Amino acid sequence: MNQPDDPASLTELLERLRSNTAGQVQVSVADILEAVGERSFGPLVLIAGVITLAPLIGDIPGVPTLLGLMVLLTLGQLVFQRHSIWIPSKLARRNIEREKLARGLDWMARPARFMDRWTKQRLLWLVRGPGQYVIAIICMAVAAAMPLMEVIPFSANGAGIALMAFGLAIVARDGLLALVAILATGGTAWFVWNNLPW
Rank of each mutant, 00 (worst) to 15 (best):
V50Y: 03
W107M: 07
G62Y: 01
M70N: 05
V50H: 03
N95T: 12
M108Y: 11
W118D: 04
I51T: 10
A102D: 14
R98S: 08
D106W: 00
R98G: 02
S84H: 12
K100V: 02
D116G: 05
P61C: 02
L126K: 14
F80N: 15
L101G: 08
R98Y: 00
D59W: 00
T52V: 12
Q121C: 04
D116K: 07
G131V: 02
Q77M: 05
A48R: 05
I47P: 04
P111H: 03
V71S: 08
I57R: 07
G58Q: 08
A54N: 11
A35I: 06
I57T: 13
R103D: 09
S40Y: 01
Q24F: 00
I57A: 10
K120G: 12
L72F: 11
D31W: 01
V71F: 02
V63G: 06
I135K: 08
S89V: 11
G49Y: 02
W125A: 15
P64V: 05
Q81M: 11
P43G: 05
V29T: 11
P61L: 01
D59L: 01
G42Y: 03
L67C: 09
L66I: 06
I135R: 09
G58L: 03
L73I: 12
A92K: 11
R82N: 14
V36T: 12
V25M: 10
P64S: 06
I96T: 10
T65F: 01
I51M: 15
P64D: 05
W86A: 14
V134D: 14
G62A: 04
V27F: 01
L44Q: 07
L101Q: 10
T65E: 09
W86N: 14
G42M: 05
I51E: 04
G104S: 10
H83K: 15
I135C: 07
E97P: 09
R94A: 11
D116M: 03
L124G: 13
I47Q: 07
M108K: 08
G129C: 10
L75Y: 03
I47W: 01
V25W: 00
R94C: 06
D116R: 06
A30W: 00
A48N: 05
R93C: 00
R98L: 00
E34M: 02
G76M: 07
S84R: 14
P55I: 02
A92G: 06
A92C: 06
P55W: 01
V45L: 05
I32H: 03
R122M: 02
F114S: 12
R39M: 15
G131K: 08
L124P: 11
G23K: 05
I87H: 06
T74E: 04
A109Q: 13
Q81L: 12
G42T: 08
I60W: 01
M140S: 11
R128F: 01
L69P: 00
K120A: 13
A112P: 06
L126G: 02
R94G: 00
Q77C: 07
G58N: 10
V134K: 13
A109D: 07
M108C: 07
F80R: 15
I87K: 09
Q26H: 10
G104R: 10
L66V: 08
G49M: 04
V50I: 15
L73S: 14
W107V: 10
T74S: 12
F114V: 14
I51W: 02
S40N: 13
T119N: 08
I85G: 09
P130H: 06
